[in-house]
């Protein structure tokens, strides 16, 4: 991959948004977007965890998995790295920033099972990014995810007083809104291509 980290960062936000084009992180996206405040909290935690775990996983992959020829264990190792990091982060925040813990703490366990985190690590391996590219891609994806969930949360708040067909209420209408958002983002896709 000979694309600069800077371009990759913007591409991860707009042209290949992790949620709107790769469908990652849908579960928490649909369930948390009921409220703007919690969407923002979760989004910020996702950005933070995503950036750091992508870097960590890159180091683990390059300096442990490849030299010892155990690439087939990458899934287990990545999951353990992510889970361990989230656990550690929880302990640190609880100890040193209790106020932050009350706002973000409840989201951290949700993040371990957020497929966006794991998916970005896998994309990084498949697309052969270098360290800087991985960090940029991780951060960009996190910001893209935050943007998507904030948009949906804002639209859903407006939607509360509107009449929605009974069968579509809740998940159905959220999926349609997401589809329209994805359609808008298709407009960016000609600018730069990351595959």
């Amino acid at each position: 991959m000979d694309i600069s980290a800077f371009i990759l960062f913007w591409a991860a936000i707009f042209t290949s948004n992790i949620l709107l084009t790769n469908f990652l992180g849908m579960c928490s996206y649909l369930s948390v977007s009921r409220e703007i405040e919690s969407s923002f909290g979760l989004g910020i935690s996702v950005i933070f965890v995503l950036t750091i775990t992508t870097g960590l996983n890159w180091l683990v992959y390059r300096y442990i998995l490849v030299p010892f020829d155990i690439i087939y264990l990458q899934y287990i190792v990545f999951i353990i790295v992510i889970a361990a990091f989230v656990q550690l982060l929880e302990l640190i925040i609880e100890r040193y920033a209790p106020a932050l813990y009350y706002t973000l703490g409840i989201f951290l366990p949700l993040i371990t099972v957020n497929c966006a985190i794991f998916g970005v690590s896998l994309f990084m391996v498949i697309r052969n990014y270098n360290f800087l590219q991985s960090i940029a891609y991780g951060a960009g994806s996190g910001i893209g995810w935050l943007m998507a969930i904030m948009m949906l949360a804002a639209i859903r708040r407006k939607l509360k007083e509107k009449l929605v067909p009974i069968g579509l209420q809740g998940v159905g209408i959220s999926l349609i809104i997401t589809g329209i958002m994805a359609l808008a983002f298709v407009g960016f896709s000609g600018i730069v291509q990351v595959q």
Binding site: G167, L168, V171, L175, I176
Partner: peptide
Amino acid sequence: APSAFFILAMFIWVIN
């Protein structure tokens, strides 16, 4: 990508 969202939404709607 967008069509996947629309079709799944329609599918859930019909089932519901």
